[in-house]
Structures are given as structure tokens and as C-alpha cells.
């Protein structure tokens, strides 16, 4: 790769990084996108937003046509949710102003939940049973023959 081309690539990368950061700075909910293999995850925001008029909303659609769940905001500026099944979930902070005019604080954050394979989990489970049975048998047999050792 020539030196000129390399510099051009560095400048383009720098500009795109700057624009992404600027876009990210406008977002109140972080991380913007995350994946979870266990169905639990944490979302963060500026704690000053946490008040009784603001909620965290969850939807299966990017446009929030149907709100499936609303959560009150802990004052610490983060929330941990759990027990989600495999799927894509969109979250946004939603401010219900005193005159009841809904006002979205920001665009959405996306959480992709993809649980681990059941097959490999069951393989580990069986391995665990065998290992545990081996340990119990060993201790039992050793204790029985303790006096003869």
C-alpha cells in the first residue's frame, strides 16, 4: 500500500469516527447496540434524566409501533434487565411531560439476545453429572476403606 493511500485511509477513518462519535453523543441510552448470550443486559444513561416523568420503553420494532414494556428508571442512571428470550429488542427513553405530551429523548438502543446452543449446554450438564458422580463415589469409597489405608 502506498504512503499516500495509507494517509487517505487514515483521514477517512478519522472523519467517519468523528461523525459516529458526534451521533453517539446525542444518544442518551448506551450502549447503542449490544448482544447477550444469557438474556440479561445493562443499559445506561445520564442519571440527571432519571425522574418520575421518564420511562424506559421496550418494543420489538424499530419504530416503537407497539410498546411491550415500560420500566421506571433507577436513579443510578442504569438498569439491569433479565430473562429475555432470543430476539431483537429496541429500547428508548421516553419523557411524558407534565402536559402529557409525549416527547422522545433520543433514538433507540438495540439489544440482540441470542441464547447459547441447548445442545452444548446439555453436553456440559452431562459432563457435570459424571464428574460429580465420580467425586461422590471416590469420597464414599475412600471413606469406607479409610481404616485400611
Amino acid at each position: 500500500m502506498s504512503l499516500k493511500r495509507w494517509f487517505a485511509l487514515v483521514i477517512i477513518a478519522g472523519i467517519s469516527h468523528f461523525s459516529c462519535a458526534a451521533e453517539g453523543g446525542e444518544r442518551a441510552l448506551l450502549p447503542v447496540e449490544q448482544t447477550s448470550s444469557e438474556g440479561y443486559f445493562t443499559l445506561k444513561w445520564d442519571p440527571s434524566i432519571s425522574n418520575n416523568n421518564t420511562q424506559l420503553q421496550m418494543s420489538l420494532n424499530r419504530d416503537f409501533r407497539q410498546i411491550l414494556q415500560s420500566y421506571p428508571l433507577p436513579s443510578e442512571g442504569k438498569i439491569t434487565l433479565s430473562g429475555y428470550a432470543t430476539g431483537d429488542y429496541y429500547f428508548r427513553l421516553h419523557n411524558l411531560s407534565p402536559n402529557h405530551q409525549p416527547e422522545n429523548i433520543q433514538s433507540h438502543a438495540l439489544v440482540k439476545v441470542s441464547h447459547r446452543s441447548l445442545e452444548s449446554a446439555i453436553q456440559l450438564f452431562i459432563l457435570g453429572i459424571l464428574l460429580f458422580a465420580g467425586l461422590v463415589v471416590c469420597i464414599f469409597k475412600f471413606s469406607k476403606s479409610e481404616s485400611s489405608i
Binding site: S37, E38, G39, L81, S82, G83, Y84, A85, H115, R116, S117, L118, S120, A121, I122, L124, F125
Partner: peptide, 14 residues
């Protein structure tokens, strides 16, 4: 949180 009641929850089985 439906997965919390799922007995075939892979990470929980592990």
C-alpha cells in the same frame, strides 16, 4: 422475563 422460568435455559443449565 420468560426465560427465568425456562428449565431449558442454556446458560443456566451450564
Amino acid at each position: 422475563s420468560p426465560e427465568l422460568l425456562n428449565l431449558l435455559f442454556p446458560a443456566a443449565i451450564m
